[in-house]
């Protein structure tokens, strides 16, 4: 831990900032991102808790294997949970590509590699969003599960599903947009000039958080 004292001895210019030390050895930006995610997890939690409470107030609940049994282009074939498995893997993989981007940014400051992995992450995000769009359309148009009615059983299932996956999808969408911006900046060499790829790490945290939330959304709607 480099104490600030070493800085004060250099006296002039930049060393004017002679503060103490960060207890967590992280920059404020990363810390802020972490705490933002803590806060955001509470908003997701409020939705998932809503889901739990309402579900417990029903005698019966639609079986996920019945609701989610279709696959694009394979009409009439019952493939329970197969499509959502695909979605889940897309998201996990995009998380992996993101963590690799962060890794090559932090450890090697390797612009090309970072751009490559970030682009793959964006691709994963887009595939996920497209899949979700298909799933929603299918449920609404073909299965007639809407906000007010649900042929599979408890009406609450429908609106809870659309609200919570919608809120998650919104997070994915913002993540994709932010990723695009950061990727351009990486490609332009902004962070090389800055000498730090921390921005990639910060958006990485956000992206992983979106993945993390999906674990619980997935569990709530597709497994339990």
């Amino acid at each position: 831990m480099t104490e600030a004292t070493t800085l004060t001895t250099t006296a002039i210019g930049p060393s004017r900032w002679n503060g103490g030390r960060s207890p967590f050895k992280v920059s404020w930006g990363k810390l802020m991102m972490w705490y933002f995610l803590v806060g955001d997890s509470f908003s997701f939690a409020s939705f998932l808790i809503t889901y739990g409470a309402l579900r417990f107030s029903y005698e019966s609940w639609p079986a996920p294997t019945k609701v989610f049994s279709s696959f694009p282009l394979l009409e009439g074939v019952k493939l329970p949970l197969m499509f959502v498995s695909f979605m889940t893997f897309t998201l996990i993989m995009s998380s992996v590509t993101m963590v690799l981007a962060v890794h090559y940014g932090n450890h090697e400051m390797n612009r090309k590699k970072v751009v490559k992995w970030l682009s793959l992450t964006i691709l994963g995000g887009i595939i996920f969003l497209a899949s979700q769009a298909w799933e929603w359309t299918h449920l609404i148009v073909d299965e007639h599960m809407t906000l007010s009615q649900n042929p599979f059983g408890a009406p609450a299932f429908g609106w809870l599903f659309f609200t919570i996956t919608g809120f998650h999808g919104f997070h994915v969408l913002t993540g994709v947009i932010i990723n695009c911006i950061v990727t351009t900046k990486v490609a332009r060499g902004d962070y090389d000039r800055k000498g730090s790829y921390e921005m990639v790490e910060k958006i990485g945290l956000y992206w992983h958080f979106v993945d993390l939330v999906w674990v619980f959304v997935f569990m709530a709607f597709y497994l339990l």
Partner: peptide, 10 residues
């Protein structure tokens, strides 16, 4: 950054 080693980002 070298002058501010701990607080990259500060």
């Amino acid at each position: 950054p070298p002058l501010n080693p701990v607080y990259t980002g500060d």
